[in-house]
């Protein structure tokens, strides 16, 4: 089975960040507090299915596009 990413989360589902697939995107994600080992949860999906809002470490809500979310691998 291939590795799942944040873009495949179901609404309300929680997961732990494992790694990133895009080097440039990972920098921005790290700065926004998405650190490997951190728990994320899919909170909301925008009306047209994209972007999505994830809760990062219980701290705050981050909105990102599906193609950005698909660079975050989860376990």
């Amino acid at each position: 089975m291939s590795v799942r990413t944040v873009s495949q989360l179901q609404k309300g589902e929680k997961a732990i960040i494992r790694s990133f697939t895009d080097r440039v995107m990972s920098l921005k994600l790290l700065e926004m507090g998405c650190v490997p080992g951190c728990e994320v949860r899919l909170d909301a999906v925008a009306p047209l299915g994209d972007p999505i809002c994830i809760n990062v470490g219980g701290c705050y809500s981050l909105s990102l596009r599906l193609n950005e979310a698909s660079t975050i691998e989860i376990e």
Binding site: M32, L64, R65
Partner: peptide, 11 residues
């Protein structure tokens, strides 16, 4: 270049 969105949602 690809655009990106990534936005903090304030309370």
């Amino acid at each position: 270049e690809p655009g990106y969105f990534m936005l903090e949602m304030p309370t």
